[in-house]
Design a protein around this nucleic acid. Structure first.
Length: 830
RNA sequence: CGUGAAGAAGCUCAGUGGAGAGCGCCUGGCUCAGGACCGGGAGAGCGCGGGUUCGAAUCCCGCCUUCACGGCCA
């Protein structure tokens, strides 16, 4: 096959132009044939696992945002292979998901059909961009061989007690017959159709991610991630230390537990607030207040958390009940208000209006006392128009007066504990993960339940499913496959679409009826562990062999969008930690270095969207300029992590750079046997050093800029072979088809990928002559060319001979001379 | 409101103490002409105000604007 790449074709005419439409398919064919990017069987210590966040193969095809991150990782992969590193650089599909299911609902075709089609489009587009993926390792999360191991991991979680069922309030829309995400509910109506949506408690599978909260937090310390991402994830976990305090309810044999991070402000707690769902609300409410409280609770119940939080007004109702402040003995009123959330802490708070913004607003709105107990100065102030939330010194707090906030916290917590009225406690914002969806196109749970029935439940016999007795499917029976359905319309059963597949759902074993779980897993499930499967994608006996995992983990470089900064990266870390604890993976963390590529905006500086009409289609760009130009342009636009707008004029500049590279190699090919002069040689070696370090630092835009400059110099130098060969090696990770073509024009057999990486000669990187600006009183007057090691005297002498400097010096007296070798000569005169 | 990032030539960006590149623009050459190519050129109060320094885009303090993400977590 390789013989057919005749070197005669490009040789024949000067009219020949760089023609990506011919070159690119040619080399893509070569790579596929020669298996150029196959992952090495026995990688040594020098290994690199470079991973892109795999895409959801949407019907719209590839977006110009995709090639940005993918080109970045490809440059790393290719340049490191050239340097002899064993590289794992795979690609796959996060292919479960709602769009394919919605398409199925509309058309009645199985979501798999549309999914397979979309994957084919994505694969074709990615191959057209010349990425050096090892396509033999492709994975697809919807493939039963993959689903099998997703289900297997779920069973490990289940057996470890980390998967459990709970009743969770969800948005149920009876008209649509489905559960909606918060985003799909607007003002209590469904986004599609405007049907009423109610909050309904529904049985859900939960994963106990909170059990790993501290480790997920601690692990962030050791990981090479963007600071902002680590902060975001840390805040999402939201660890806060404080105290649990017990308030007695007056006239009742009841206590209310609250969580506070400011036990030092306990003397300032002038009221309490319960969340509307708090179990004690009904008992505490007095008859006089019952009607108002019931009405308030009912309204709050039908609001989603999001709607509740949308309103900044502090609404609430007095219950009529009172509690006793455990330190001051004061009677404080108990209110119900929806700004207190049942899901955090204990669902009840002690309200300290003087020192908490929300409590302050509430007290102002409802005329409740405000008592200052912390002051910046140690002296109580007068009235204040906003809460004082800073740290300070305790006042009006009995024996704790005068203590700094931190000391007061510790002292009060210790005393509460002694009196049995409280104790230190740590809280997290992180909640357990709702892991089930009432959808079709997802992984079935490998779980079934006993059924009590007097007939055949498939035929509609009365039956009871014992959800409280979940049974794991035996591992040997995995995967549990999705049933075929006649149609994919959501039904009227909140248990999910699968509940209608009665033949699939109910089965008999040893004369006993059982029912399969009809929920499916969320899209996150497959993406939680795909990076493990890439290490050993065909393994039939395990999610991946221990050897393969030990070889490749952790992922050395992971590139993907910042929108996954919290959820995907947190969920994947959680699964990884569980697998680590069970001895299935060898590293405590999955991902080493993480980078988020920036967003590419439309030419109008707005987010690309169909409605704005500013979408750039990669297929069009490839047709017009070629894949290499698209790659180079996207890398040249700016720093990888920056948000930057598309510019259809500037892309021509990248094309012209590649034109010039191609021309240089044809010049050599046609016999220009020019030797490399010493000045150009210097430039070549400086460029090697610059491009190499820029690639390692992911500064691709500056690497390209350096190669642009070099290409012009090489052209002026008449295309010296030695320089052009080095340029071909340097440019090939960025523009791989062109790199191969240049290498061939220069008379070498393919592939440039295996031709090694140039090494800069350190001796050529230092200049023996330097340009030194001369300033007089800080204003630049001249630039001198001096020996790099010129002394101050030599520099002064040269400066005085310069007419412009002499003129500027004029009659003045020299008061001071600042000479920084290789940088500046500044003369201060008066 | 909070967190993070960024403000530099018309545009997109290099530049960690002494202002540069690409694209665009003007101009000459080449061409029947255009494009491409080659040569030359114009174009920057480096967001604002202070401070440190011989000298600040760069270091320090305050402020403004834009973008991204997050939202009542006691």
């Amino acid at each position: 096959m390789t013989d057919m790449q005749s070197t005669e074709t490009p040789a024949k005419a000067e009219e020949e132009r760089y023609d990506p439409a011919a070159i690119e398919p040619k080399w893509q064919g070569y790579w596929e044939e020669a298996q150029t990017f196959l992952t090495p069987e026995n990688p040594g210590d020098d290994k690199l696992y470079v991973l892109d966040m795999f895409p959801y193969p949407s019907g719209a095809g590839l977006h110009v945002g995709h090639p940005e991150g993918y080109t970045a990782t490809d440059i790393i992969a290719r340049s490191r292979r050239a340097r002899g590193t064993s590289v794992l650089h795979p690609m796959g599909w996060d292919a479960f998901g709602l769009p394919a299911e919605q398409h199925a609902i509309k058309t009645g075709t199985h979501p798999r059909i549309k999914t397979v089609e979309n994957i084919a489009t994505f694969r074709r587009q990615l191959k057209a961009l010349g990425f050096s993926y090892d396509w033999t390792r492709e994975v697809d999360t919807t493939d039963p061989d993959y689903v099998r191991w997703t289900q297997w991991i779920f069973l490990q979680l289940f057996h470890a007690g980390l998967a459990y069922q709970d009743e969770v309030s969800v948005n149920w829309c009876a008209a649509l017959g489905t559960v909606l995400a918060n985003e799909e509910v607007i003002d209590g109506k469904s986004e599609r159709g405007g049907h009423p949506v109610e909050r309904l408690p529904l049985r859900q599978w939960m994963l106990k991610i909170t059990a790993y909260a501290d480790r997920l937090l601690a692990g962030l310390e050791g990981v090479d991630w963007p600071n902002s991402t680590r902060i975001m994830q840390g805040e999402w976990i939201g660890r806060s230390e404080g105290a649990e305090v017990t308030f007695e309810v007056q006239g009742a044999d009841q206590n209310i537990e609250v969580f506070t991070t400011r036990p030092d402000t306990l003397f300032g707690a002038t009221f309490m607030v319960l969340a509307p769902e708090h179990p004690l609300v009904a008992q505490i409410t007095t008859d006089a207040q019952r009607e108002a409280v019931n009405a308030y609770v009912a309204t709050a119940k039908n609001k989603s958390d999001r709607d509740r939080q949308a309103s900044k007004e502090k609404t609430g109702v007095f219950t009529g009940g009172h509690a006793i402040n455990p330190v001051s003995g004061a009677e404080v009123p108990i209110w119900v208000a929806d700004y207190v959330l049942m899901g955090y802490g204990t669902g009840a708070i002690m309200a300290v209006p003087a020192h908490d913004t929300r409590d302050f607003e509430f007290a102002k709105a409802h005329g409740i006392d405000i008592a200052q107990v912390v002051s910046a100065t140690g002296e109580p102030a007068g009235d204040f128009d906003q809460a004082f939330t800073e740290l300070g010194v305790a006042v009006n707090s009995g024996k704790y007066d005068g203590m700094a906030t931190a000391d007061a916290k510790a002292a009060i917590t210790a005393d509460l504990e002694k009196d049995g009225k409280g104790k230190a406690r740590t809280e997290y914002k992180l909640r357990d993960w709702i892991f089930s969806r009432q959808r079709y196109w997802g992984e079935p749970f490998p779980i079934y339940f006993p059924v009590t029935t007097d007939g055949d439940p498939r035929e509609g016999a009365e039956h009871t499913i014992h959800y409280d007795q979940p049974i794991a499917v035996d591992e040997s029976e995995l995967p549990v496959r999705l049933p075929e359905l006649e149609d994919y319309q959501p039904g009227d059963d909140p248990a999910g679409v699968l509940a209608r597949a009665k033949d699939w759902r109910f089965f008999q074993k040893d004369g006993q009826w059982f029912a399969r779980e009809t929920n499916t897993m969320p899209q996150w499930a497959g993406s939680c562990w795909y990076y493990l499967r890439f290490c050993d994608p065909k393994n039939p006996d395990a999610l991946a062999s221990k050897d393969a995992l030990a070889t490749w983990l952790p992922v050395d470089l992971y590139v993907g969008g910042a929108e996954h900064a919290v959820l995907h990266l947190l969920y994947a870390r959680f699964w990884h930690m569980v697998l680590y604890d069970q001895g299935h993976v060898p590293t405590p963390e999955p991902f080493g270095k993480l980078i988020h590529q920036g967003m590419i905006l439309g030419e109008d500086n707005q987010k690309m969207s169909k409605s704005r009409g500013n979408v750039v289609n990669p297929d069009d760009v490839i047709a017009r300029f070629g894949a290499d130009t698209l790659r180079v342009y996207e890398m040249f636009m700016g720093p990888l992590e920056a948000t930057k707008p598309w510019n259809s004029e500037a892309i021509g500049g990248s094309k012209r750079f590649l034109d010039r590279c191609w021309k240089l190699s044809t010049m050599v090919h046609e016999g220009a046997d020019v030797a490399l002069d010493s000045a150009t040689k210097k430039s070549v070696h400086k460029t090697i050093a610059k491009v190499t370090s820029d690639i390692d630092e992911l500064k691709f835009n500056t690497a390209i800029s350096a190669m642009m400059v070099l290409s012009k110099e090489l052209e002026k130098a008449g295309a010296p072979r030695e320089g052009v060969e080095i340029l071909a090696k340097l440019v090939h990770p960025f523009a791989p088809h062109l790199g191969e073509e240049m290498w061939e024009l220069l008379g070498h057999p393919p592939s440039v990928q295996h031709a090694g990486w140039p090494v800069a000669d350190a001796a050529l990187l230092v200049d023996d002559e330097v340009e030194i600006p001369v300033q007089v009183n800080g204003k630049k007057r001249a630039v001198l060319v001096l020996a790099a090691d010129a002394t101050e005297e030599q520099a002064m002498a040269a400066a005085k001979e310069d007419p412009k400097v002499a003129e500027a010096l004029g009659e003045g007296t020299l008061r001071k001379t600042i000479y920084v070798p290789k940088r500046i000569l500044n003369l201060i005169i008066k």
